[in-house]
């Protein structure tokens, strides 16, 4: 059996994508097999998931959901769709992590920040000029809705303190620390190590300036707990936070979350 645009189609040995396109009787020019671009000559295997689509065609809501995920590897998508990730701080790290996870099809996000979008944020944070003055929680929820409306977004619009973290994030599968303040970064790690033993955690330290790309690394602190950054580049006068390097660190964090959710740590340990 094949899945063609989410519909079951019987499989015959030696079938190619051209056979499917002919059978659909449709004018299509985007061809994907198992989340990867293919050609008319691609020979299919039983169980393949195929997408045939016409560039520029407006999809229905249901087709849109499937198409948003058509480039994902089958299986990966199903796993991520069942997961909730918390993000503490929605600045240069948090806004990037949230959008990356939404594009990858995470099931739900729990987003926490107390601040509003300022013009001085826009050099690195994913907000727009017309969102200046809005709460970051509301502004980011609007952006995520436009990126992938199938992500469940819940917001916590308050200034977090150490004692709240273990309570507010007790139901997430993974928590990403994206604070700016080093005291809160320490508080976040302490709270997780003491109160959230089953939650994956990815924190960050050292990402200011335009230093070496490869000095940003992902280091294991404890089982399921990782630290991203060069661990020395503090935001300071003369070493500001810049979109590219903050983005490198944020994407380390997002990818590490996905790796943990998909069981990469267990594989490495085996």
């Amino acid at each position: 059996m094949l899945l063609v645009n989410e519909n079951e189609v019987s499989f015959q040995a030696g079938m190619t994508l051209a056979d499917l396109v002919r059978a659909q009787g449709d004018d299509v020019d985007i061809l994907l097999v198992n989340g990867y671009p293919a050609t008319l000559q691609t020979v299919l295997s039983d169980g393949d998931q195929c997408w045939l689509w016409k560039r520029g065609k407006t999809p229905s809501a249901e087709e849109m959901q499937h198409l948003l995920y058509a480039r994902h590897s089958p299986g990966v998508q199903r796993l991520l769709q069942g997961k909730m990730v918390g993000i503490m701080g929605l600045g240069g790290l948090g806004s990037v992590v949230a959008i990356a996870l939404a594009r990858m099809g995470i099931g739900a996000l729990l987003l926490a920040d107390y601040d509003v979008v300022e013009p001085t944020n826009l050099n690195r944070q994913q907000y727009f000029v017309d969102q200046v003055g809005q709460k970051k929680t509301a502004a980011l929820r609007d952006i995520l809705q436009r990126v992938n409306p199938h992500v469940g977004v819940t917001v916590i619009d308050q200034r977090l303190i150490e004692d709240d973290i273990g309570v507010l994030f007790k139901n997430v599968h993974a928590l990403v620390e994206c604070f700016d303040d080093p005291a809160m970064k320490a508080a976040g790690l302490r709270a997780v190590l003491q109160h959230l033993p089953g939650v994956f955690y990815v924190c960050a330290s050292g990402l200011a300036g335009y230093g070496d790309n490869n000095a940003i690394r992902t280091r294991r602190l404890y089982s399921g707990v990782y630290l991203v950054g060069d661990e020395v580049s503090a935001a300071a006068p003369g070493e500001g936070l810049m979109a590219a390097r903050v983005g490198i660190a944020a994407h380390h964090q997002a990818n590490q979350v996905v790796r943990l959710l998909l069981g990469a740590e267990n594989e490495a340990a085996e």
Partner: peptide, 8 residues
């Protein structure tokens, strides 16, 4: 000791 520097 796990030390954090500011920026996010």
């Amino acid at each position: 000791l796990i030390r954090f520097v500011g920026g996010g």
